[in-house]
């Protein structure tokens, strides 16, 4: 049932669930990141670099960032759908949105794993 709803026949349903799953990933990471920041308390440059040193943390952060890009894409796209009635203008904005999010994603990946 759930699998069937998520196929290409129901793209709205898929977007809806993707929006929520990416939100969950970000929520869990955010709580974890704040807690880790409060425990480790990186107060110097060395401590700050150490904070981002563990591979598991880099991967978790990248997962957060991927979720964020997907979440922002769906969210801002909905905002454009609601407030930009002109289809050609909206098309340009949608493309700008996708390009900027890809740039952020590549940038973050390079920062965290490069």
């Amino acid at each position: 049932m759930l699998i069937e709803l998520l196929t290409k026949r129901y793209p709205g349903m898929r977007a809806w669930l993707t929006q929520r799953l990416s939100a969950l990933v970000m929520a869990v990471y955010s709580v974890f990141a704040v807690a880790r920041f409060l425990i480790v308390q990186p107060n110097s440059y060395e401590a700050w670099v150490d904070f981002f040193q563990p591979l598991w943390w880099r991967i978790a952060t990248l997962l957060f960032w991927i979720s964020l890009c997907i979440h922002a894409w769906l969210g801002i796209r909905d905002v454009f759908k609601d407030y930009v009635p002109n289809p050609s203008v909206r098309d340009v904005l949608d493309k700008l949105l996708v390009v900027s999010l890809w740039v952020y994603l590549v940038w973050a990946t390079w920062l965290l794993l490069g």
Binding site: Y45, W48, V49, A72, G75, V79, S100
Partner: peptide
């Protein structure tokens, strides 16, 4: 949500700058 989307490049810039060297961190 829109505001948070707009500050994404600033966050990445600050993160990159702060991690690049001790001087930049300061």
């Amino acid at each position: 949500g829109c505001v948070l989307f707009l500050i994404l490049p600033v966050i990445l810039l600050l993160l990159q700058f702060s991690l690049s060297s001790a001087q930049h961190y300061e």
